[in-house]
Design a protein around this nucleic acid. Structure first.
Lengths: 124, 124
DNA sequence: ATATATAGTTTAATAATTAAAATATATATT
DNA sequence: AATATATATTTTAATTATTAAACTATATAT
């Protein structure tokens, strides 16, 4: 399964590139991106995503909240759930991370990745 | 960059599947696989691979050595370097992990992954 | 010889993660 | 309505992983 490990390595390298020179850890960065993509996530969703316990998410989000990058929003429908959403500052941060790449490179990458995802969907 | 995160997620899921029910952590499992693929790796190579400090690798390998899954071999050419290699027990372990999948599923997966790798190589 | 560099380990401190208990809210049952 | 049970998150204390820096051993260059 050399193949899969190589793929994982390459996608990790991508995140490496993004996080290069950033003060945030890779998982922090990934979380911010996920929050942007999904428009916020519940604590349990995040825990599932990262395959860690809910306690770890509380602490992870505490840190990002302290950095003023995310914000906790109680759901009005079910007041037990907390949705983590990007603050304005968080949005800006996420956008900044991508400014490192030239725009056309980004669209190239996006095209290939879409293709890759289609392929991967056939097996998982 | 939703795409890249999805890919990473999918390849992580693959390792999840592999490590399911195993007593080893995902990184431990990945290391064993890498050792098999590469026929052993130097400590620094492993540190680069996982993007951690050499100290972390020492401790990671200590644990696997204690489990009798890897073995340290001093290189005769340059006696500073230590190569980590799978023990017989380690080889067996790695093979076992793959026995969970039906053979034909594995060849399907391998085919797709090879394709994916080719695509990814065009951008990284 | 001597200095400098490299590979890996050790150490002490810090950071991340966990399991389990606690809190708050929801849902189901009598 | 009252009670029990379930769910979402947080807190706590303990464990585990990671780091930076000092250290050991070996190699290379001057």
């Amino acid at each position: 399964m050399k193949e899969m490990l190589e793929i994982q390595q390459k996608s990790k390298m991508f995140v490496n590139l993004l996080s290069e020179g950033e003060s945030l850890s890779q998982n922090q960065l990934i979380l911010l991106l996920q929050l942007k993509i999904n428009g916020g996530m519940k604590a349990t969703e995040i825990a599932d995503f990262f395959n860690v316990t809910p306690g770890a998410i509380t602490s992870m989000c505490d840190k990002l909240e302290k950095l003023n990058l995310v914000q906790r929003v109680r759901e009005s429908g079910d007041r037990r759930v907390v949705k983590m959403v990007l603050t304005h500052h968080g949005e800006v941060k996420v956008n900044d991370v991508f400014l490192k790449f030239p725009q056309e490179k980004l669209t190239d990458i996006a095209k290939v990745l879409k293709e890759v995802n289609k392929l991967m969907s056939t097996i998982f």
